[in-house]
Simulated scan of single mutants.
Amino acid sequence: MSDREGHVGGPSDEDLSLPKATVAKMINELLPPEVTCAKETRDLVIECCVEFIHLISSEANEICEQESKKTIAPEHIINALKRLGFDSFTAEVEDVLKDHKQQQKDRERKADKIKDSGMTQEELEAKQAELFELSRQKFGQSAQK
């Protein structure tokens, strides 16, 4: 075990982070236009988010183990939030989970629709190319763009 690893084969907490550009974009969207955020502030927000995720996932893991499960389920996360006093977050988390499940169903239906079309891969690709060309024509773009 090296000094940079929390356990064999896994990253240490100092190796964990969030995409800086994404966090910066989220911060900028939340702040009024006349307010800017220093790099150090963004980095602190990232550290706090990573710590929060670690806290929630550790608690969810504990709940999971108490239930003799091997996989952390969304319900474990929701219960962890409640246990740790973040009850006010659960409604939004449940809404996001509901939206996610609906998006999965929609993707599966779309995949089934493609499979059930009876068209070969080549026919589907030709149809896609045709639709792209129609779109280019509609929006006045040449096929070279």
Rank of each mutant, 00 (worst) to 15 (best):
I27H: 01
S142W: 01
R136W: 00
I56K: 04
K115C: 08
Q121N: 10
Q144S: 15
V50E: 07
S17W: 06
L131C: 00
I78M: 12
T41K: 00
M26N: 05
I27S: 03
P74Y: 07
K145G: 08
V23E: 10
R136T: 02
P32H: 09
K145F: 09
T36M: 07
K110R: 12
I78F: 11
L134Q: 12
A126E: 13
V23G: 06
C49E: 02
R42C: 11
T71C: 02
S57N: 05
V96T: 08
I56H: 01
G10F: 15
Q141E: 13
V50T: 07
A80G: 05
Q66W: 02
P11Q: 10
E29P: 02
L84P: 01
E62T: 12
T71K: 14
D106Q: 14
K115S: 14
R107F: 06
A21R: 11
H76V: 12
K39C: 01
I78H: 06
H7R: 15
G140N: 11
D116G: 02
Q103K: 15
E67R: 15
K127V: 00
Q141H: 15
D43E: 11
D99R: 15
A91R: 11
L18E: 02
C49A: 13
D99Y: 13
D3H: 08
E14C: 03
H76D: 14
T120G: 02
G118F: 07
L124M: 09
G140D: 08
R42Y: 03
A24E: 09
D15Y: 05
L134Y: 02
P74G: 12
F89H: 14
D116R: 10
T71G: 01
L124T: 01
S68M: 06
D95Y: 05
G10W: 11
C48P: 00
D43Q: 10
A91E: 14
H7L: 10
V93W: 06
D99T: 07
E133G: 01
E34H: 12
V93A: 08
L16W: 05
T120Y: 08
T120L: 08
A80K: 03
L131E: 04
E123G: 01
M119V: 00
E29C: 06
E75H: 06
S117I: 11
R136C: 07
A91K: 14
V45C: 12
S17M: 04
L134F: 06
D99E: 14
A24C: 05
M119N: 05
E75S: 15
S142D: 14
R4K: 14
S58P: 02
Q104W: 01
S12A: 12
Q102L: 15
E108R: 13
T90H: 07
E59M: 04
R83N: 12
Q102F: 08
I78C: 14
E65N: 14
E92P: 00
I56Y: 06
K115R: 15
E108L: 10
A21M: 14
L44C: 12
